[in-house]
């Protein structure tokens, strides 16, 4: 997103569209009751979630308001009492170390070292899952958990929205742990 937004500006590229983030739309659709999510599935389970604020989306593009939208969606989906924020957060959040081409750079040891800050932030929340609504973040945070043998899972936001709606099929649960592999399965 940032590459396009910054590129349009830097190279003076004329265009007739606006840039939008699906995170803002999720929040709007839930507020408008078009997306009827709820957290009943997690009422008894009490699975804990934290969320990564992607730098490209929050600090570098839409700022704190989109971070609030992100939290609004997450809390609706997993239950407010099951959301644990990491610190610092929102525009002041630490980069996970997946950005800037890091994952492709070949500097793997440095990337893991860099990622320790994020790892410790996540571990401090004691959350079972880290929601990473950005692909680079998802890859890096997933890799950090494996490399440092932390036992949190890393999930996309759409996975949890679909889980909450009872429309997440069995083969769409790749990133869920055993605790959620069969929860709220579609009724067919």
């Amino acid at each position: 997103m940032f590459a396009v937004r910054a590129g349009l500006q830097k190279f003076n590229i004329e265009h007739n569209f606006e840039i939008e983030s699906i995170i803002r739309l999720y929040a709007r659709w839930i507020r408008e009751d078009k997306l009827k999510v709820n957290s009943d599935w997690n009422k008894d389970l009490q699975v804990k979630f934290t969320v990564q604020d992607p730098c490209q989306l929050v600090r570098k593009s839409f700022g704190d308001p989109v971070a609030e939208d992100l939290r609004y969606v997450v809390k609706k989906v997993v239950g407010e009492e099951n959301f644990v924020d990491m610190h610092p957060n929102r525009s002041n959040n630490y980069c996970c170390g997946g950005g800037g081409g890091y994952l492709q750079s070949g500097y793997t040891e440095a990337r893991h070292q860099y990622g320790k800050v994020k790892l410790n932030q996540i571990l401090a929340t004691k959350a079972d899952y880290c929601i990473a609504p950005c692909h680079n973040c998802h890859s890096q945070i997933h890799d950090l958990s494996e490399h440092f043998e932390a036992d949190y899972h890393t999930v996309h936001l759409w996975t949890l929205i679909a889980l909450s709606l009872g429309i997440l099929a069995e083969n769409e649960r790749e990133y869920l742990g055993d605790d959620l592999k069969e929860v709220n399965m579609p009724g067919y």
């Binding site: 569209f17 840039i19 939008e20 699906i22 995170i23």
Partner: peptide
């Protein structure tokens, strides 16, 4: 960026929507 912007404008879409 030019290829992407042209693709969105050619389809006359109002928003370029990111999955993140």
């Amino acid at each position: 960026v030019r290829v992407k912007a042209k693709a969105v404008d050619d389809l006359e879409c109002k928003y370029w929507l990111n999955t993140e």
